[in-house]
């Protein structure tokens, strides 16, 4: 497919992929200025989302989520530990996002990049209130469940936050905690997996990320669009329609009106995903 660069009456024709590599910004603008996106979506359109629960049998709770090409697997392992002295009745939910070179050449091998650390921290804080940590108590002050939720990205094509949040919600719903008892004489906690209970989530979270590409606000930016977007808005709703998070970060200011529009789009998105989850 050829695209003519007609800006200065030059008769140079580029193959589409070449033009995209050489002048990525202009390539995206050609679509955005025509009110569409390079993959044919509308500005407010999210990619196809698929959620599957229970995909990893070695984890106590797991899920695989795909938004477009971005694929993540979330696995939750339950271990036993002593509670914090300040909160003797509360267990732990520790969330980490893994962005390795396997999913994209953007990430270097070795220690987690700043992006991965920020994503881990944000999601960890977001879910702090989603699970009632008191339900993770085995024996007050002595033994509690410690849930390690690890979100591993298999393929990266933008919008890791939405995918990771959905994966964690699905994995938490899939989680089956065995009945556990503490033997105070030996200090050993024993558990029976045949009697497993589901964890009740205080609230399910439905995320929606919007990115400012050039001057256009688009929903669910993929990798190509994310490279040009310095600014993004994340809106997270819970199942009662209340907000759990609005996070606008990045260089360009976004008007308050636009943020309200994002909230409205996020409400629609929440309705759609709640049927998939």
């Amino acid at each position: 497919m050829d695209m003519d660069d007609t800006s200065e009456q030059q008769q140079v024709a580029f193959a589409m992929h070449t033009f995209e590599r050489i002048h990525h910004t202009e390539f995206q603008r050609r679509f955005l200025s025509q009110n569409t996106r390079h993959d044919g979506r509308a500005f407010s359109q999210f990619r196809a989302t698929h959620v599957t629960k229970g995909t990893v049998s070695t984890a106590q709770g797991s899920s695989t989520v795909r938004i477009g090409n971005t694929t993540v697997v979330c696995g939750i392992k339950a271990e036993v530990s002593e509670p914090d002295v300040k909160t003797p009745n509360e267990g732990y939910l520790v969330t980490n996002v893994e962005l390795s070179p396997m999913c994209s050449a953007r990430f270097r091998p070795g220690a987690p990049s700043d992006e991965a650390q920020v994503a881990s921290e944000h999601i960890h804080r977001l879910f702090g209130k989603a699970v009632d940590l008191a339900t993770l108590c085995i024996e007050s002050g002595q033994a509690v469940w410690s849930l390690s939720a690890d979100i591993v990205c298999l393929k990266y094509d933008g919008n890791i936050l939405d995918t990771a949040i959905l994966a964690l919600v699905a994995a938490l719903e899939d989680l089956r905690l065995p009945e556990a008892q503490l033997d105070s004489a030996t200090g050993v906690v024993s558990a029976d997996r045949t009697i497993a209970r589901q964890l009740t989530l205080r609230k399910r979270l439905f995320p929606a990320t919007f990115a400012l590409v050039d001057t256009y606000l688009v929903a669910d930016a993929d990798d190509a669009e994310e490279q040009l977007a310095t600014t993004s808005v994340l809106v997270v709703l819970d199942d009662s329609g209340r907000l759990a998070n609005i996070w606008k970060r990045g260089a360009c200011p976004v008007s308050n009106e636009t943020i309200h529009q994002c909230i409205e789009s996020a409400v629609e998105r929440a309705e759609t995903i709640s049927k998939t989850l």
């Binding site: 209130k129 609230k203 976004v254």
Partner: peptide
């Protein structure tokens, strides 16, 4: 706003 972070319920 240049930065927004609203968290909670």
């Amino acid at each position: 706003p240049v930065y927004v972070d609203s968290r909670g319920d």
